[in-house]
Amino acid sequence: MLSLIPVLIGVTLLVFLVMQLAPGDPAQIMLGPKATETAVAQLRHELGLDQPLLVQYGRWLIHIVQGNWGRSIQLKREILPFLLGRFGNSAYLMLFATLLACSVGVPAGILSAVKQYSVGDRVAMVLVLIGFSTPIFWLGIILQILFGLVFGILPVSGLQSPGRADLGDLIVHLILPSLTLTTGATAIIARMTRSSMLEVIRQDYIRTARSKGLSERSVISRHALKNALIPVVTVVGMQVGYLLGGDVLVEIVFSYPGIGLAMVNGILARDFPLVQGAILLVASSYVLVNLVVDIVYAYLDPRIHYE
């Protein structure tokens, strides 16, 4: 847990420096082309942008520790509630996409491994690879036209229909973006499950189980699966961590108000406090997810112990 803090400081310091090195002045961008020089200078002063870099960073860090995330320069609102909302939206998408990826990827991987070199194995692995190799925004647009227009059964953008906020409506809106997002994750999970399963079923204890006359089904589900899933957990954890950061391309294509889009808009508008806050949130969640993965790991593999 303690390693969390240097990583978070490193991440925020890095984004701070990168953003400061970037040309473009948040005050100018915010006021637009029609603002005067004096107005821009005035705003720079109000925002503290005329202070030395380290002072700015230090001040930001102190405010964060005090629980003050500040106001967004561009969006003129409190950062924390805004970001939590966006983060929540990305979390819905992550949850849905991960469930989808696991429920396709894990069974496909197991079946492929059990029937290694069969036609089914080949076809499944080629299919997941095709999904993996498809540029994601392109797939998104095609799905929109197909399901939104040709079949006319799914909404093509946003998070909810106007005036509705119920779960059913939310889920319907999540289908296309998660489908687009999962092609990559499904492939990785399926391949990892397959190779890890292949390794496990060659182990001695599986041979023993088989020789005891247990059915193949029982050998796989009782004995092999749990061990085979250990590396899969890592991969799923990495995907969860990645998806919690929001996939910008999918969020743009589907106008999905996730945190990735908020961050890109923030970067383009040089909205330093917003980007810093967003990165802090995303990086913390990434580190936390990794921690959870380690715990799940320990549960699945009794050989691993953590002090």
């Binding site: 929540g88 819905y92 998070l159 909810q160 906020a165 969860v240 997810v289 959870v292």
Partner: peptide, 14 residues
């Protein structure tokens, strides 16, 4: 895991 993460997030819609 996902629900815990969701719990700290604000609701999507008013």
């Amino acid at each position: 895991v996902a629900l815990v993460l969701l719990a700290c997030a604000a609701p999507v819609a008013p």
